[in-house]
Computed example of a mutant assay.
Amino acid sequence: MTTHALPEADWAAWQNSWDRQQEEYLPDREERFRVMLEMTEALVGPAPKVLDLACGTGSISDRLLQRMPRASTVGVDRDPALLTIARGTFAEDPRARFLTVDLSDPDWTGALSEHAPFDAVLTATALHWMRTEPLRTLYGQLAGLVREGGVFMNADHMPDESTPRINAAVHTYEETRRRQRTGEGRLDWGGWWAALAEDPALGKVAAERFALFGNPSEVRHDHNNEEFQDAGWHAATLRDAGFAEARAVWASPTDALVLGLR
């Protein structure tokens, strides 16, 4: 487990840099966050206890606490570098805490026993790392962490394979746009990690991350690129897992936000 002792780093600068890098791939990122938080407030009120699942640098937690000051959040992730940034960012905020949790561990929910159940479990652009059957198992585990009447929301890549020509056109358009912006000096995924590794304060946790997952600046694909599920699969699987209702509440040409209500 990564130590909670924090290095001296410019946390706000790294948060901003992470947001800009993510927006290179997700130009509608803030829109999905807006809908996610509106649905949270609509269904469980303005002071929810939230699990920020696969939280990364705490992007959801940050927007949640700005929008709903009476909320609280527990962020879980396995990435030591991103968790270090999250912990540094929220070090003075008692409403947020962050735990090192491996979602592939069959007993990972035990780390949350003192915090569960949650009013809402929220995640974005993270669970596409998981293949179909592990994700099905995860959804079953999540049902036990959400209180009756609570919600789970996942905003992620959920392609519709029934429209191959549309998908191909969107892919070509987005790749062209990304290449243009990278050529203008914007950091892409690999470039962001290379920059993090060069920060004297964060080089150690970056190396720890690379030992776990590989170095994104050296590996072209460090994500699952073989198994993606469409929004219908996510909704049906959530219902099978014990959610009373589930459907998409937002969509882009490539992504969707699926909500499950317990």
Results as ranks from 00 to 15, higher is better:
residue 2 T to A: 13
residue 2 T to M: 13
residue 3 T to R: 09
residue 4 H to V: 04
residue 7 P to I: 11
residue 8 E to V: 13
residue 9 A to Y: 07
residue 10 D to N: 13
residue 11 W to I: 05
residue 13 A to D: 08
residue 16 N to P: 00
residue 17 S to K: 14
residue 19 D to E: 15
residue 19 D to S: 10
residue 21 Q to C: 00
residue 23 E to Y: 04
residue 24 E to H: 01
residue 25 Y to G: 00
residue 26 L to N: 03
residue 26 L to K: 04
residue 27 P to D: 01
residue 32 R to T: 02
residue 33 F to V: 04
residue 34 R to C: 06
residue 37 L to G: 11
residue 37 L to V: 05
residue 42 A to E: 15
residue 43 L to Q: 13
residue 45 G to L: 10
residue 45 G to I: 12
residue 46 P to K: 05
residue 47 A to D: 10
residue 50 V to G: 00
residue 54 A to P: 02
residue 55 C to L: 11
residue 59 S to G: 14
residue 60 I to N: 12
residue 64 L to I: 06
residue 65 L to P: 00
residue 68 M to C: 12
residue 69 P to C: 09
residue 70 R to P: 07
residue 76 V to D: 05
residue 77 D to S: 08
residue 78 R to W: 03
residue 78 R to Y: 05
residue 78 R to A: 13
residue 79 D to A: 05
residue 81 A to G: 05
residue 82 L to E: 11
residue 83 L to P: 02
residue 84 T to Q: 04
residue 84 T to R: 04
residue 85 I to Y: 06
residue 85 I to P: 01
residue 87 R to T: 09
residue 87 R to Q: 15
residue 88 G to I: 00
residue 88 G to E: 02
residue 91 A to E: 14
residue 91 A to C: 11
residue 92 E to C: 05
residue 93 D to C: 06
residue 95 R to P: 04
residue 98 F to C: 02
residue 98 F to Q: 02
residue 100 T to I: 04
residue 102 D to N: 15
residue 104 S to A: 13
residue 107 D to Y: 02
residue 109 T to P: 14
residue 110 G to R: 15
residue 110 G to K: 13
residue 112 L to E: 02
residue 112 L to G: 06
residue 115 H to P: 07
residue 118 F to K: 01
residue 120 A to F: 11
residue 120 A to M: 10
residue 121 V to P: 09
residue 126 A to K: 09
residue 127 L to T: 15
residue 127 L to M: 12
residue 127 L to Y: 12
residue 128 H to C: 06
residue 128 H to W: 10
residue 129 W to E: 11
residue 129 W to H: 13
residue 135 L to Q: 13
residue 136 R to K: 14
residue 139 Y to G: 02
residue 139 Y to K: 01
residue 139 Y to N: 05
residue 141 Q to G: 01
residue 141 Q to L: 08
residue 144 G to E: 03
residue 147 R to Y: 09
residue 148 E to D: 14
residue 149 G to W: 03
residue 155 A to C: 08
residue 156 D to S: 08
residue 157 H to P: 01
residue 160 D to N: 13
residue 161 E to S: 12
residue 161 E to D: 13
residue 162 S to G: 06
residue 169 A to R: 15
residue 171 H to R: 14
residue 175 E to Y: 09
residue 176 T to M: 11
residue 178 R to F: 03
residue 179 R to K: 14
residue 179 R to N: 11
residue 180 Q to A: 13
residue 182 T to R: 14
residue 183 G to C: 08
residue 184 E to S: 00
residue 186 R to H: 12
residue 186 R to Y: 01
residue 189 W to C: 00
residue 190 G to I: 08
residue 191 G to N: 03
residue 192 W to L: 15
residue 193 W to I: 02
residue 197 A to C: 08
residue 199 D to I: 11
residue 200 P to N: 10
residue 203 G to I: 03
residue 205 V to F: 03
residue 205 V to Y: 05
residue 206 A to G: 00
residue 206 A to L: 01
residue 206 A to D: 01
residue 211 A to G: 06
residue 217 S to P: 10
residue 220 R to W: 02
residue 224 N to Y: 12
residue 226 E to G: 06
residue 229 Q to F: 08
residue 233 W to V: 11
residue 233 W to R: 11
residue 233 W to A: 12
residue 239 R to G: 05
residue 239 R to E: 12
residue 240 D to P: 00
residue 240 D to K: 14
residue 241 A to H: 01
residue 245 E to N: 10
residue 247 R to K: 12
residue 252 S to C: 10
residue 252 S to R: 05
residue 252 S to E: 07
residue 254 T to D: 10
residue 256 A to T: 06
residue 256 A to M: 06
residue 261 L to P: 03
